[in-house]
Amino acid sequence: MNGQELCKRLLTMAIVLLGVSLLTYGLIFITPGDPARTILTQQMGGQIPSQEAVEQFRAENGLDDPFLVQYAHWMGDVLQGDLGHSYYNDRSVSEMIIQRLPNTIALAVASIFVALVIAIPAGIASARNPGSQADYAAQIGSLIGVSMPNFWLGYLLIIVCSLRLNLFPVAGAAGLEHLILPSLTLGSGMAAVIARLVRTAMLDVLDDAYIQAARAKGLRERIIIYKHALRNALVPVVTIIGLQLSYVLNGAVVIEVVFQRPGLGTLLVDAIFARDYPVVQGVTLLIGVIFVLMNFAVDLTYSRLDPRIDLGGDPT
């Protein structure tokens, strides 16, 4: 990728980030009814707020200004790292996010780890002996994994591992033992997709001339598979892990609710039900930005790993 292409890519990314921020901020304007009234009613525990209180709230929170003014104001603060304050306890949104973020990152990293530990051996076993029982087992497992709702898998694991076998705690996020079931749940769903891709990529690579050359040289099968084939087969897998980030973030929201883990997902869901819009906006924006940046990073890594890949073309 040369400099010009990189610039083009960066420009597209900037436009998408602008779109992401506009969409995130614009979301509260689709709320049915008057947000100020809804929020005050909730804050006052169901009582109808007085007209003055509503007007004061609007003025305080800048809800009277035109959309673009409000957006510009918000964006100015966001660029300085200020995501606003919760409507309920006046805590800073960035602070709330920073407090929850480590739990979600731990879950994401552990899940990706679980996914790779399951998917790479399964994909290799499948590709080495296509049509064998191991291959069928891996394929059927993968079909089921893709179709299974992850929240159900979570409860299955809770029923079996926590309630019957008493191996792990049901809920919480205190230590490593709280991480095992959630990351197994999220990771195995991801493994289903990754295993498919490892299998296809390995099938491709195993037919290449250099593998035949390695065989002709009399190298041991293990070395051929792990040293020569896997390294090349992993190139497409890296992109997929990037794309799977969408799965991780979607899944983290649901899985955190299942295991009652205090993370970004539970923060978002709680804020949605409480109609705490600054928190909803902050978390949504953060997730959107992380996602865009990660995809960009994956594109870059991809072209590094395999210089034959040219990203110069139209990204759409």
Binding site: I15, V16, V20, Y247, L249, T284, I287, F291
Partner: peptide, 10 residues
Amino acid sequence: DTLLAFPGIV
């Protein structure tokens, strides 16, 4: 691009 820039379920 903007719509695809978010994880769908979120």
